[in-house]
Computed example of a mutant assay.
Amino acid sequence: MKKLGVSNILMLLLLSIIILFAEYLFLTGDKLHGIFLGLWAPTLLGIMIYLKLISNERR
């Protein structure tokens, strides 16, 4: 837990909530909004990885 850091844990929690809400929307019949919202999670994960790589490169 200490290696991840508070900000990463909060971001992963937010991503989990986004995924669950997207699945809820998709399964209740609002398929387009579910797909649109579901695409946010991998985008945010990509941004997290990119920022992590930039911060590691500067060290």
Score class of each variant (00 low, 15 high):
40 W>L: 13
17 I>T: 15
16 S>E: 01
7 S>C: 05
45 L>F: 07
37 L>I: 08
16 S>I: 15
40 W>K: 08
25 L>Q: 09
30 D>Y: 09
56 N>V: 12
7 S>Q: 06
5 G>L: 02
23 E>W: 12
53 L>F: 14
29 G>E: 09
58 R>V: 13
56 N>R: 15
17 I>W: 03
52 K>Y: 15
27 L>P: 05
49 I>N: 01
44 L>M: 00
52 K>I: 14
30 D>K: 15
26 F>L: 15
21 F>P: 04
3 K>S: 12
24 Y>T: 10
35 I>L: 05
37 L>A: 06
34 G>F: 05
15 L>P: 04
2 K>T: 14
32 L>A: 14
13 L>K: 05
33 H>V: 09
33 H>W: 12
4 L>F: 07
1 M>K: 14
47 I>N: 07
8 N>R: 05
22 A>T: 00
41 A>L: 02
15 L>I: 04
12 L>W: 04
29 G>F: 07
17 I>E: 01
33 H>G: 10
40 W>T: 12
33 H>Q: 09
45 L>W: 03
26 F>M: 11
45 L>Q: 04
34 G>V: 08
13 L>Q: 01
26 F>Y: 12
36 F>H: 12
32 L>K: 14
13 L>N: 07
13 L>S: 11
11 M>F: 07
49 I>Q: 02
42 P>R: 02
42 P>L: 00
23 E>A: 15
11 M>N: 04
45 L>E: 08
18 I>N: 07
56 N>M: 10
24 Y>N: 06
59 R>Y: 06
29 G>S: 03
48 M>E: 05
46 G>Q: 00
19 I>E: 08
53 L>I: 09
55 S>N: 14
8 N>S: 11
12 L>Q: 02
17 I>S: 06
41 A>V: 03
9 I>V: 02
47 I>P: 06
45 L>A: 07
7 S>L: 07
13 L>W: 01
47 I>V: 10
26 F>E: 00
54 I>E: 04
40 W>M: 13
46 G>H: 00
40 W>N: 11
47 I>M: 06
25 L>H: 05
14 L>R: 03
18 I>S: 04
4 L>P: 10
11 M>P: 06
36 F>W: 04
17 I>A: 09
28 T>D: 13
39 L>R: 04
53 L>A: 06
23 E>Q: 14
46 G>E: 02
37 L>Y: 08
6 V>C: 04
3 K>L: 15
16 S>D: 13
42 P>F: 01
20 L>E: 01
29 G>H: 01
35 I>H: 00
23 E>L: 13
26 F>Q: 08
48 M>N: 03
52 K>F: 06
50 Y>T: 13
2 K>Q: 12
8 N>Q: 10
38 G>V: 03
58 R>G: 08
41 A>C: 02
27 L>Y: 09
22 A>K: 00
2 K>R: 10
17 I>M: 06
30 D>V: 10
55 S>Q: 11
32 L>Q: 15
22 A>N: 02
54 I>F: 05
51 L>S: 14
1 M>N: 13
43 T>I: 13
16 S>M: 11
10 L>Q: 01
17 I>Q: 02
47 I>S: 10
55 S>V: 10
19 I>A: 09
35 I>P: 06
14 L>G: 03
35 I>F: 05
55 S>P: 07
52 K>P: 05
19 I>C: 06
40 W>R: 06
15 L>G: 02
36 F>T: 12
18 I>V: 13
6 V>Q: 14
19 I>P: 03
19 I>G: 09
